[in-house]
């Protein structure tokens, strides 16, 4: 039983790595389907903007609210800005953007590719002389890898603005104090950490979605299963990869 499970797990990892190998070769060698690449940048990047902005805003706001009351106990209310900016930029911005992308992009990719598999469209692509990795996986991986950091910066910015609104209007701390506090606590290493993480998170979310989608089988039910699996796997992967990266970056940079 355990042996069987282990074998299956190893096979999954092997296939996942193989897909990444094929993707890397396709990215390096070309030819590229530019039309699809641009479309994916639009769908993954622009398409996720609303959800990322809303998540970022409310996270920043609630962060200010919660930490404001806690800091009050120490008479440290003016330091709210430090907490908001440090948490948003280092941790919450990348992770929450990652989780939102896992839900929106990971599931969408798995569903789309999965239904293409079960309706023979992937085979049709191959029969028409197109490599599905080049046509479908490469554009999504490029878009996920490059757009996740951009979306994270947006989430960070909007989160800090959300924090500012709560700090000034609810906690009655002056704007000047908030903004000084926001920049004071930020070290360049924090900014780097917040910028490097989302590249990896975006890559993981998209490759997991593509892999699970392309391995879908068993009709529409299989597509449903693939979609759920993609969201669950990508979400857990976001948290796990975030932890590992944090550990590695701490060792390397601080």
């Amino acid at each position: 039983m355990i042996q069987h499970w282990l074998k299956a797990a190893v096979l999954e990892v092997q296939e996942y790595v193989r897909l990444q190998g094929a993707t890397m070769r396709a990215i390096v060698r070309g030819p590229y389907y530019w039309h699809d690449i641009i479309e994916q940048f639009d769908q993954i990047g622009l398409g996720s903007l609303t959800v990322v902005v809303l998540t970022g805003f409310f996270t920043g706001a609630v962060l200010a609210l919660q930490s404001g009351f806690t800091l009050d106990q120490f008479g440290a209310r003016p330091f709210v800005g430090r907490l908001v900016s440090a948490s948003m930029i280092k941790e919450l911005g990348p992770v929450l953007t990652g989780l939102m992308l896992a839900g929106r992009v990971g599931s969408g990719i798995a569903a789309e590719l999965g239904s293409m598999v079960v309706t023979d469209q992937i085979n049709a692509l191959r029969a028409l002389g197109t490599d599905p990795v080049r046509k479908l996986v490469v554009p999504r991986v490029m878009a996920g890898f490059l757009m996740a950091p951009v979306l994270t910066v947006v989430a960070d910015t909007v989160g800090i603005i959300g924090g500012w609104l709560i700090t000034t209007f609810q906690l009655r701390v002056s704007s000047g104090v908030y903004w000084t506090s926001v920049t004071e606590a930020l070290y360049i290493e924090d900014v780097w950490m917040g910028l490097i993480k989302p590249f990896f998170l975006g890559y993981v979310i998209v490759t997991v979605g593509c892999y699970i989608g392309l391995r879908a089988k068993g009709g529409t039910q299989g597509v449903g299963r693939a979609t759920t699996n993609a969201v669950v796997t990508a979400s857990v992967a976001v948290i796990a990869v975030d932890f590992i990266l944090t550990r590695v970056l701490f060792t390397l940079m601080y």
């Binding site: 309706t119 023979d120 469209q121 085979n123 049709a124 692509l125 191959r126 029969a127 028409l128 002389g129």
Partner: peptide
């Protein structure tokens, strides 16, 4: 080789 082979799939498999 596939440049000389056309295949009509079950149910069509059109790109939707």
């Amino acid at each position: 080789v596939r440049a000389d082979l056309g295949m009509v799939f079950q149910e069509g498999a059109l790109f939707d």
